[in-house]
Measured scan of single mutants.
Amino acid sequence: GLEHMADEEKLPPGWEKRMERSSGRVYYFNHITNASQWERPSG
């Protein structure tokens, strides 16, 4: 619901949600550090 939507907005600075086109899996990418990970970043 709306709570989940708001929660997605609160990623740490630099992080954004991305989708891997080949598999459709969602991952997280940090455009500041060029880091990427499957787990939702905390902090």
Rank of each mutant, 00 (worst) to 15 (best):
G1S: 11
G1T: 11
G1C: 15
G1K: 11
L2S: 14
L2R: 13
L2Y: 14
L2Q: 13
L2G: 14
L2N: 12
L2H: 12
L2F: 14
E3G: 11
E3F: 01
E3A: 13
E3L: 06
E3Q: 12
E3P: 13
E3K: 09
E3I: 12
E3V: 11
E3M: 06
H4A: 12
H4W: 10
H4M: 14
H4K: 12
H4V: 14
H4Y: 10
H4L: 14
M5H: 11
M5T: 12
M5R: 10
M5L: 13
M5I: 13
A6S: 14
A6L: 12
A6E: 11
A6H: 14
A6N: 10
A6V: 13
A6W: 11
A6T: 12
D7G: 10
D7Q: 10
D7K: 09
D7I: 10
D7S: 10
D7W: 06
D7T: 10
E8S: 10
E8K: 08
E8F: 03
E8Q: 10
E8Y: 03
E8P: 09
E9C: 14
E9V: 07
E9I: 08
E9H: 08
E9F: 07
K10A: 13
K10R: 12
K10H: 11
K10E: 15
K10L: 11
K10I: 11
L11S: 01
L11D: 11
L11G: 00
L11T: 02
L11H: 01
L11Y: 02
P12A: 04
P12W: 03
P12K: 01
P12E: 03
P12H: 02
P12S: 02
P12Y: 02
P13L: 08
P13E: 09
P13D: 08
P13Y: 12
P13G: 05
P13V: 07
P13A: 08
P13Q: 08
P13N: 07
G14S: 03
G14M: 04
G14V: 02
G14C: 07
W15V: 00
W15H: 00
W15D: 00
W15N: 00
W15R: 00
E16P: 00
E16S: 08
E16N: 04
E16T: 08
E16M: 06
K17A: 09
K17M: 12
K17G: 03
K17I: 10
R18E: 01
R18F: 06
R18I: 07
R18H: 07
R18L: 08
R18P: 00
R18Y: 05
M19S: 08
M19K: 09
M19L: 14
M19D: 03
M19V: 15
M19Y: 15
M19A: 06
M19G: 02
M19W: 13
E20R: 04
E20D: 15
E20H: 14
E20I: 11
E20K: 04
E20F: 06
R21A: 15
R21N: 13
R21L: 15
R21Y: 11
R21W: 08
S22V: 11
S22Y: 07
S22K: 13
S22G: 12
S22M: 09
S22N: 12
S23N: 06
S23H: 04
G24E: 05
G24Q: 06
G24R: 05
G24N: 07
G24W: 01
G24H: 05
R25W: 02
R25D: 06
R25Q: 06
R25K: 13
R25M: 06
R25P: 02
R25T: 05
R25A: 06
R25G: 03
V26I: 14
V26Y: 14
V26P: 08
V26L: 07
V26T: 08
V26H: 09
V26K: 04
V26E: 13
Y27W: 06
Y27N: 02
Y27G: 02
Y27F: 08
Y27P: 01
Y28L: 00
Y28S: 00
Y28G: 00
Y28P: 01
Y28M: 00
Y28V: 00
F29H: 09
F29T: 03
F29K: 03
F29Q: 02
F29E: 04
N30E: 02
N30W: 01
N30S: 04
N30K: 00
N30Q: 02
N30G: 01
N30Y: 04
N30A: 00
N30F: 03
H31N: 14
H31G: 06
H31I: 15
H31P: 08
H31Q: 09
H31L: 14
H31D: 05
I32D: 09
I32E: 09
I32P: 02
I32M: 09
T33D: 04
T33F: 04
T33P: 00
T33Q: 04
T33M: 04
N34G: 15
N34P: 01
N34C: 15
N34H: 13
N34I: 04
N34R: 09
A35Q: 15
A35T: 15
A35N: 10
A35I: 15
A35G: 07
A35R: 14
S36G: 06
S36E: 09
Q37L: 03
Q37W: 03
Q37P: 00
Q37H: 02
Q37S: 06
Q37Y: 03
W38E: 07
W38I: 06
W38P: 05
E39H: 08
E39M: 05
E39S: 05
E39I: 05
E39R: 04
E39D: 09
R40Y: 10
R40G: 02
R40S: 09
R40N: 07
R40Q: 07
R40H: 10
R40W: 08
P41C: 02
P41I: 02
P41A: 00
P41H: 00
P41G: 00
P41W: 00
P41E: 01
P41M: 01
S42Q: 10
S42H: 10
S42T: 14
S42F: 09
S42K: 09
G43E: 13
G43P: 10
G43K: 09
G43C: 15
G43M: 15
G43F: 15
G43N: 13
G43R: 09
